Computed example of a mutant assay.
Amino acid sequence: MKFLSPLIVFTACGLLAAPLFAAEQAPDLSGCAAKRQDISTQIEQAKAAGNSDQQSGLEKALSEVTANCTDASLLKQQEQKVLDAKREVSRRQADLNKAMSKGDPDKINKRKDKLAESRKELQDAQEELEKVQPDEEDE
C-alpha cells in the first residue's frame, strides 16, 4: 500500500499539471492575429451575455480588422503612439521646469503628477510596441 499511495499522488499531479503545460506550449499571438483573437473573445462574451448590440458592433470591428489590418500598419501606428507619448513627456518636463523656476509649490506638485502620468503612458505605449514588433528570430 505504501507503493500505491505515491503512485496515485504522482498520477494526480500529472493530470492536474497537463493543462498548464499545454497552455505554455501554445504560441502567443501578436499583431493583427492577437487583435482578431481579442475581438473574437469579446464576441463570445457578448453572445454569452445576450448583448446583441455589442455583438453586432464587435462583429463589424472584426470584419474591419480582418479586411484592413496588417502587422506593418499596426507596428507603424504603435510607433507613432510612442513618439507622441515621448513628446508629451518632454512637454510636461518643460512645464515642470518652468514651475520650478517660479517656485510655486502647488504648481510644481501638479506638474510632477502630470509628468508621472505621461511617463506611465509612455511606458504603456512602449510595452504595447514590444508586443507588436516581430521577433528577431522569426525573420
Rank of each mutant, 00 (worst) to 15 (best):
S5P: 00
A12G: 02
C13K: 07
G14N: 06
L15G: 09
A17Y: 13
A22K: 10
A22V: 13
A22F: 11
A23M: 08
E24T: 04
Q25A: 13
D28L: 07
S30L: 00
S30F: 01
G31Y: 09
A34C: 01
A34H: 04
R36M: 12
Q37E: 13
S40W: 01
Q42V: 12
Q42M: 14
I43D: 08
I43Y: 09
E44I: 07
Q45A: 07
A46W: 11
A48E: 09
A48P: 02
G50H: 01
D53R: 06
G57T: 04
L58M: 03
L58A: 03
A61K: 14
A61F: 03
L62I: 07
S63G: 03
S63V: 05
E64G: 05
T66P: 00
T66Y: 03
T66I: 02
A67W: 11
A67P: 10
N68C: 13
C69L: 15
C69D: 15
A72E: 13
A72V: 08
L74H: 10
Q78P: 06
E79A: 14
D84L: 14
A85L: 04
A85C: 08
R91I: 01
R92I: 00
A94V: 11
A94D: 14
D95T: 07
N97G: 11
A99G: 00
S101K: 09
G103D: 12
D104S: 08
D104W: 05
P105D: 04
D106R: 07
D106L: 06
D106T: 09
K107I: 08
I108N: 02
N109E: 15
K110W: 00
R111P: 00
K112N: 08
K114M: 02
E117W: 00
R119M: 14
K120P: 03
D124S: 12
Q126L: 01
L129K: 03
L129W: 02
E130H: 13
Q133S: 14
Q133E: 13
P134H: 08
P134K: 08
E136G: 01
E137G: 00
D138F: 12
D138T: 14
